[in-house]
Nucleic acid binder design. Structure first.
Lengths: 99, 99
DNA sequence: TTAATATATTACTATATTGCAATAATACTA
DNA sequence: TAGTATTATTGCAATATAGTAATATATTAA
């Protein structure tokens, strides 16, 4: 594997490798949501949520549109959904085997 | 998604989200390898490589066995291969669309 | 036992990330 | 325009991660 691909892939992975960010992606899988609703769903503080959204927007994972005072975020990179499905499968399998 | 799954998944993702670690996994996809050969293939320093191997071993991604003076590492968690395949697909698609 | 090879660990510095509080900016509404 | 709701940004302290050099450990061979 070439170094550039490794760097770039690591970058994408880091961009989602955070509990709050994963939960945000999970929420947005169904439909776009505004920041306030995401904050409410997660029970996290507004500033933190906004920061995590921004991180993912910068990496091209999310995109957003403003509608009046609200900003709606959506998943821009549908591929991350597949990636995360693999991760969750893995984690669930691991949990089962530990019983 | 429950918080525990998010925490655990983020942990796994963080464990692979590093260029050297990705390259190690890529090497081990084909076959198990000893540390020296991995160091040689990657052109990284011995200490760094050993550290990265250890990180992934602790997270259950890799496993190893000693054979004399050498230690052979292998992928313990075959699922990460699928996860990374998704990531690479994504990165390649992205590269193409930027052309 | 000594030397050489292979791998792991430690201590340290530098850098990055996280979470927080406060505040700024934006866009509605009265 | 003033006030309010919504979202973004900034500055900071705490923590985590990365990279390095030096050293330790384990195994084999002489």
């Amino acid at each position: 594997m070439d170094r550039d691909l490794a760097e770039h892939s690591a970058d994408i992975l880091k961009a989602v490798a955070h509990p709050i960010r994963l939960q945000i992606i999970e929420l947005l899988k169904k439909e776009e949501m505004c920041v306030g609703d995401i904050v409410h769903e997660l029970g996290e503080k507004q500033a933190i949520t906004s920061q995590q959204l921004n991180i993912m927007k910068n990496k091209g994972i999310l995109a957003c549109r403003r509608e009046g005072a609200k900003v709606f975020y959506r998943i821009e990179n549908k591929n991350v959904i597949k990636v995360l499905a693999c991760v969750y499968d893995h984690c669930k399998a691991e949990t089962r085997s530990k019983k």
